[in-house]
Design a protein around this nucleic acid. Structure first.
Lengths: 244, 244
DNA sequence: CGTAAGCTTGACAATACTCAATCTCTGTGG
DNA sequence: CCACAGAGATTGAGTATTGTCAAGCTTACG
């Protein structure tokens, strides 16, 4: 899987808040070749102190909590270009674990810690972009609550696919309405709080209706508009725009 | 409904992080008699700029989002002593609406804004307490995801009641395992993402099993331990302790 | 080939929702 | 003081959605 470049990361941050040239250089300097981890590796353990912010430069991960009963709940999918352990509190303890779904690479960007801490006196634009990124995380967590609390099986799958597409598009990791999608139906089941069998039938339904094709490590959204109206994802998108 | 006092709020913040005497005084000075709002009043509108932090001093509210279909999802219950619109970003836009469930009173504490912004150079202990409070909000949002994604009807109701009890206990608003609980079964249904009828049957089941009594504006947890093991809320409690 | 991961299918059971009606309060106006 | 209205709670019957179990299929790959 391709590793993101400093240019990718810069353009993502630029889309959140305009960066000064010096700030863009800071980003370039920080992004070194990533450290590889195998699928299943725990990148951040719930309850343990966060060492400092990192960027996922390649592969997919998820933020998750395991219940005493062994059941597992996923809070968010972490995509290339996303931050892990970004927090404005110094030395916080992680509220959830972050686990690699595929083989991944992460890059330590502890150099961003002072930027976060100093509240934009230093590198104002970068601080804006980082806090906005974390605000978007929060927004997506609310989306997840809506998915789990209010949406039917087909709405959940549709809305997740739309979210993944729009996030990957920002990183330039889509081809039109298609994209690499390494989640198995089992992953989707855990993420969306439904059974594997039911995910399977829902995916088949989307296919039969000509709405989307999901499988073989890829997803293609054939009818994004119908998917959007189906899943009320557009409301979410509107909310994103407002989240300044 | 009784309005909280400065002493209540101080002891809550103290429980998060020790406060200096001067800091405690700051809190006392800020907490004036609350502004009343009727049930149903929108305290904070999604998408609108947050004017500044406020404290809910009396009554209950919820953070919620309304979908285009008219369906509604609740993210959190806001209890007396909780902050509304607390954010370390200056002038953020609200990600969700906050609406009064009962008649409420709110007190403007815009005076805390500089404390948040200055990262604890000023009033270190207070800053600690405030950021921890917001971290606990985040943790409870994760709890809500788990409830909606992984738990059965009875587990959801049990876990919500335990959460409410433990939060109210910190504010001194419980009598043993009983407390004032103004949510109707309709409120519970919206909050827990289930139908009114199903909530009703679940509440009856809890009563029949002798686990808890819910209704008439009160809740009593007869067997908190069994409720805890039933709902895996203890795991949550452990996680709370870790969230430093 | 043989294996394993991922996907698919069918039959059945459990959980939860909808609709519609009834009941029990409580406060209010006549 | 009573009738009434409305909010909240309860019940039953029928349906829809989702989960469970168990088996079989397909594909990639050593």
């Amino acid at each position: 899987m391709r590793e993101i470049t400093a240019a990718n990361l810069k353009s993502r941050l630029q889309s959140l808040s305009p960066l000064q040239d010096t700030e863009a250089d800071v980003v370039s300097d920080l992004l070194k070749p990533g450290v590889p981890h195998p699928a299943g590796a725990v990148l951040l353990q719930q309850g343990e102190a966060v060492r400092g912010p990192r960027v996922l430069t390649s592969g997919w991960a998820w933020r998750t909590r395991t219940l005493p009963s062994g059941r597992q709940q996923v809070f968010a999918i972490v995509l290339p270009g996303d931050f892990i352990g970004l927090c404005w509190r110094p030395n916080p303890k992680a509220l959830s674990s972050t686990v690699a779904i595929t083989p991944v690479q992460t890059c330590d960007v502890a150099g961003l810690q002072p930027v976060m801490a100093q509240k934009g006196d230093l590198h104002r634009g970068l601080w804006e972009a980082l806090t906005l990124a974390s605000r978007h995380d929060e927004m997506r967590l609310l989306d997840q609550v809506v998915r789990l609390g209010q949406q039917s099986a087909i709405e959940r799958v549709a809305s997740l696919m739309l979210e993944l597409h729009s996030r990957l598009a920002i990183m330039g990791m889509t081809e039109g309405y298609g994209f690499q999608m390494p989640l198995t139906q089992e992953h989707l089941a855990v993420t969306l709080g439904m059974s594997l069998v039911h995910v399977n039938r829902t995916v088949q339904l989307l296919r039969k209706e000509g709405l989307a094709e999901i499988g073989n490590g890829r997803a293609t959204l054939h009818e994004p508009d119908r998917l959007r109206s189906l899943s009320s994802f557009d409301a979410t998108a509107r909310a994103y725009a407002e989240a300044v």
